[in-house]
């Protein structure tokens, strides 16, 4: 069954720039998909529409059964709770510890303290940062900060994890560490969509690859066929 389905999606910004046109795409549950393409091909716009940072101008976007394009501003949280998002610049709270940064995502839902603690410790263990639980973001390396961001994104148990160039600021070795973590998460059943410029990573991972060009799908490589 499809987790994501885009039908005839078009996106034109107020400035008149058309970022996406006639886009049809479906992504199934549990898939790991790379989205690549040159700068300005519409990668960022595409994933921003998935978590409803942007609205499509025309067409339909269904994510986890929700018509995202029709979601009102006030109801956006409904889709956000089903999706985890990881950014190139981590977006951590600098004045909060690693624990607080991750727990933050659970606290707003009013979970009991013990449950929050158990979940946060478990997810930090998964990304390999249990020993840095009391550190502040500034005391961590870039790779470690990105692991915290990933932990925060998945602590709610989302069906979908969207990664917007998560390795963009990291060196090759650290990047592969992050990819291993993402692979682990994918094996646990979370669908992952990752936008990247790093062709080496894409080649090493052997996953499905969607190439965008001028807002359209140029090529859709099945798992293991991208060389």
């Amino acid at each position: 069954m499809d987790l994501i389905r885009l039908t005839n999606v078009k996106k034109t910004y107020n400035t008149g720039v058309t970022a996406i046109q006639d886009l049809n795409l479906s992504i199934g549950k549990g898939e790991f998909v790379f989205i690549i393409g040159s700068t300005g091909c519409g990668k960022s716009t595409l994933i921003k529409m998935l978590y409803r940072e942007e609205k499509p101008t025309a067409g339909q976007i269904i994510v986890g059964g929700i018509d995202v394009g029709r979601l009102r501003n006030r109801k956006v949280y409904k889709i956000r709770r089903k999706i985890g998002v990881v950014f190139q610049d981590f977006k951590l709270l600098p004045k909060s510890t690693v624990y607080e940064n991750v727990a933050f995502a659970l606290e707003i839902f009013g979970l009991p303290k013990e449950e929050i603690h158990a979940k946060v410790v478990k997810v930090l263990e998964l990304v390999g940062l249990k020993h840095k639980i009391k550190s502040y973001p500034a005391q961590l390396s870039g790779g470690e900060q990105q692991r915290v961001a990933i932990a925060r994104a998945i602590v709610n148990g989302p069906k979908l994890l969207i990664c917007d160039e998560p390795t963009g600021n990291l060196d090759a070795k650290t990047s592969m560490g992050i990819m291993e973590v993402l692979n682990e998460i994918n094996k646990l059943g979370t669908t992952i969509i990752m936008v990247t410029h790093d062709i080496n990573i894409v080649k090493k991972m052997n996953k499905r690859v969607i190439v965008l060009d001028s807002g359209r799908v140029l090529k859709d490589y099945e798992e293991g066929t991208y060389k």
Binding site: V76, R80, F104, I108
Partner: peptide, 16 residues
């Protein structure tokens, strides 16, 4: 603002 945008990203409702 950063705090607010992160809260929104992780699914906090406007009321939250």
């Amino acid at each position: 603002q950063r705090e607010i945008s992160i809260m929104r990203l992780i699914g906090a409702s406007n009321l939250n």
